[in-house]
């Protein structure tokens, strides 16, 4: 019996999002399931941004920290290193030093760092807070002002602080990450709240919250798949922004990326294990629908890019 491939096409489409002013990057835009170019249009590759911080990465494990020895003491040097040496397509600056439990840096300090980093690189910048809801609403507002005209991504807006952050992103011409915690309904609700206050849904990026391989990856994976099916099959416009997987920070704090081989010989080489953990987490979430990834290790990023080459 002759075989007819059971192709499926969808009414919905993921919004394409373009960021940056010097070098521009576009991700999203597909009208089919992840990498299903055999039955739909996949116009853009996913975008991988290298993560840097405003303060030295003291809590990053050795495997990934040592890559940035000599540059990570200064976010400007670090950003330039990512662009020039690692050929980063985008840089994600996490203002973790503003967290009250870290250095409690001020919004002014953060704004200065953002200005300095923007002056040093041409690729697009993603500006992330420290995930402290009160402090972020102060820090990200100043950061968004400092980045005015650079068409950045600002994040993350959460249910508890979205109003001020979204208003600042809107006033200064940026895209916005909307984060909720592993629940498609919460994610949808936050996107609705944002659009109700006038934020353009085509400038949103949905972050359904990342999890590392072995630490709840399946939750992120399935929430992403459900969001994507809602966008495509149900043509639900609120669910059509592209999705973020904030991979690096979730991966590089778990035991599998830290426990030395002499303590756990059955787990094998710590260095390769850590890199594989980041790469496998990232590639799995690409299969679930993520279009924007934030990662830390050069080898993991390169392997994922190679994987995308084979899929496109």
């Amino acid at each position: 019996m002759a075989f007819v491939p059971p192709k499926e096409s969808f009414a919905g489409r993921v919004f394409p999002v373009t960021i940056g002013t010097g070098v521009q990057q576009t991700f999203g835009g597909e009208n089919t399931l992840p990498f299903h170019s055999f039955e739909g249009e996949v116009p853009n590759r996913p975008l991988i941004a290298y993560e840097i911080q405003d303060v030295p990465p003291e809590d990053w494990p050795e495997t990934v920290r040592k890559l940035y020895d000599g540059v990570s003491d200064d976010p400007v040097k670090w950003a330039k290193y990512c662009e020039e040496e690692l050929k980063a397509k985008a840089v994600a600056l996490r203002l973790v030093g503003t967290h009250p439990d870290s250095k409690d840096l001020s919004a002014e300090d953060a704004a200065k760092t953002v200005t300095d980093v923007l002056g040093a690189i041409k690729v697009p910048l993603i500006v992330l807070g420290s995930n402290h809801v009160e402090k972020d609403s102060e820090v990200l507002v100043r950061a968004a002002e400092a980045a005015k005209g650079h068409d950045c991504i600002i994040g993350k807006a959460q249910e508890a602080n979205y109003k001020t952050i979204a208003a600042a992103a809107m006033a200064n011409g940026h895209k916005l990450i909307a984060m909720s915690e592993l629940d498609i309904n919460l994610s949808k609700q936050l996107n609705i709240l944002l659009t109700q206050m006038g934020f353009d849904k085509e400038k949103l990026i949905t972050d359904p919250m990342c999890s590392a391989l072995g630490y709840g990856l399946e939750y992120t994976y399935s929430v992403m798949e459900r969001i994507r099916l809602a966008a495509l099959a149900q043509n639900d416009a609120v669910m059509q922004p592209p999705m973020l997987a904030d991979v690096g920070m979730y991966v590089w704090k778990i035991k599998e990326t830290q426990a030395p081989e002499d303590v756990l010989p059955e787990w094998g080489s710590l260095e390769e294990r850590g890199i594989a953990w980041e790469a496998v987490t990232a590639s799995s979430l690409l299969m679930a629908g993520a279009e924007l990834l934030i990662m830390r290790h050069q080898k993991a990023v390169e392997a994922v890019e190679l994987f995308v080459d084979e899929l496109m």
């Binding site: 072995g214 399946e218 599998e256």
Partner: peptide, 19 residues
């Protein structure tokens, strides 16, 4: 390699967990 096995076994376990 042990590191690769661990990553693949873990992924398999995650994907095949009863949701």
């Amino acid at each position: 390699e042990k590191w690769k096995n661990l990553a693949l076994f873990t992924l398999r376990q995650n994907i095949y967990t009863d949701p």
